[in-house]
Design a protein around this nucleic acid. Structure first.
Length: 431
RNA sequence: GCGGCCGUAGCUCAGUUGGUAGAGCCCCGGAUUGUGAUUCCGGUUGUCGCGGGUUCAAGCCCCGUCGGUCGCCCCA
């Protein structure tokens, strides 16, 4: 704001402690769900050779890369996504691991785009992929991870929907309508924009193939056009009790070229935001990025932190979940109040003992007035205040939320006693 | 790359027909030398985004520019 101060770059966020806490909550949830499904975490470099991203994607995307030349004259790029690096790593190291690989990564990505709601220039992505399994069991497993991630965050059937589709259905459609294979990408981009374009616009684009919007809509609205893969995935999710979360939607084809079969996107039911997550099968990407040396079928999905952040913010249950997580992970469990400065050495010893036992403890670094110390305890959202004063070794533990005090003694047992106390509820529930 | 809206204190904003700046919150201190949610008192903070123009006089009017935001394009 001030003229001479340097501010953050557009689309880059300063994560103050509050925001960082939310990020950590997301990361922890993503990681927990992935681990629950037997996925292992890996990490690729954030900076990659530029050609990794130019090899497979079109010219349009290269203008949205954060690219530069390093001091050694190499053309390098900050990763705009995680999949290309995964494919590179998989091609390099896959022989060391039994198949299928179930790998996930959480990393920051960078795209030079104009920032707007739900889209920034730097953001975090949760990416889960299954490599080396071509069957629909892998796709179903992956979609299940996506659904459970949403459930774990506090969302239910009423809140979101997985719109599931299969590009192969459109391959069949193209064949039946004499669309040449080399025109498929162009045709799919018309399908992709169906929802956003006007009827006239779509009809105009379809003229080369002698089709109309109505033809496409008819195809999309006929459940009979669902592919065999869709049926299998649907049955798989049905068996898990998760079928209610998915919905056949052939209008979903996803933007880019590398998808080869099943594709899906997660939306909030009211569709107030852009897609929360998306993914699909990309059976030829690794082969193509490794110049044919490694051929691994693959399926994966990604969820960014920005859109899901908005969705959590505007949803009741997910917000409550986050609040409850914050209570369980409060930064300070016990604030030590030094009532009498003469006892500061004893207090420091208690503080250290508690910390040695893994209890999160804070205390006034310098002499401070008594009520000031309680305000500090309140400010750091401590659960208990341990008062150390002239009656030492007698101590008083104040349960801050209930304004009640309990008596303790500074013995070797104290840390264990307080640890136990921390595992118990604050106090008696009022009838 | 294109368009709508907005730029005044760290944050949210007010500022009359033009007369050289205000509130609330936050932060710090005190009332309160052994008890934190309320209350009261005091304190810090601005080239009014930047540049030019009109005027005796511009936060206010005009032009330009930069930044933010929302949308279009795009969305790995």
């Amino acid at each position: 704001m001030a003229k001479n101060s340097i501010s953050n770059l557009p689309g880059f966020r300063d994560l103050t402690p509050d925001l960082c806490l939310f990020r950590n909550y997301l990361f922890e949830t993503w990681r927990r769900v992935a681990n629950r499904y037997g996925f292992v975490e890996y990490e690729a470099p954030a900076l990659e050779p530029t050609e990794l991203y130019l090899k497979k994607s079109g010219g349009e995307l290269s203008s949205q890369l954060f690219s530069f030349e390093d001091q050694g004259g190499r053309q390098v790029t900050l990763r705009p996504e995680l999949t290309a690096s995964l494919a590179r790593m998989a091609a390099t190291y896959q022989r060391e691991y039994p198949k299928p690989l179930k790998w996930f990564e959480i990393g920051e990505c960078y795209r030079y785009e104009s920032p707007q709601k739900g889209r920034l220039r730097s953001f975090y992505q949760f990416n889960a992929d299954i490599l080396g399994e071509a069957g629909t069991g892998a796709d179903a497993e992956l979609i299940s991870v996506a659904i459970d991630t949403m459930r774990e965050l506090g969302f239910c059937e009423q809140d979101f929907v997985v719109r599931l589709s299969d590009r192969n259905a459109w391959v069949d459609f193209a064949e039946a309508n004499q669309i040449a294979p080399e025109q498929l990408a162009d045709f799919l981009s018309v399908v992709d924009k169906l929802e956003r374009d006007s009827a006239e616009e779509t009809d105009k684009k379809l003229v080369p193939w002698s089709l109309t919007r109505t033809d496409l809509e008819k195809f999309i609205n006929d459940p009979g056009n669902a592919s065999e893969a869709y049926q299998e995935i649907s049955a798989n999710l049905q068996a898990r009790g998760l079928a209610d979360f998915i919905e056949l939607d052939l209008s979903i084809v996803r933007g880019l070229a590398y998808y080869t079969g099943t594709v899906f996107e997660i939306f909030d039911t009211k569709k107030t935001l852009r897609a929360v997550a998306g993914g699909g099968r990309y059976d030829t990407l690794i082969d193509s990025l490794s110049d044919g040396s490694v051929d691994l079928p693959a399926t994966g999905f990604a969820m960014g932190d920005v859109v899901i952040g908005h969705l959590i913010e505007q949803s009741t249950e997910p917000t409550l979940r986050f609040e409850s997580w914050k209570r369980e992970n409060r930064p300070v469990e016990i604030y030590v109040v030094i009532a009498d400065e003469a006892n500061r050495p004893q207090a420091l010893k208690v503080v250290q003992d508690l910390r040695d036992h893994g209890i999160r403890v804070d205390y006034p670094l310098m002499p401070a007035k008594f009520n000031k110390q309680f305000k500090a305890a309140e400010a750091c959202r401590a659960r208990f205040a341990l008062i150390i004063g002239s009656e030492f070794p007698e101590l008083s533990l104040k349960i801050l939320a209930f304004r009640q005090e309990e008596s303790y003694h500074a013995t070797e047992e104290l840390p264990a006693q307080l640890k136990k106390r921390l595992s118990e509820p604050d106090g008696p529930l009022l009838a």
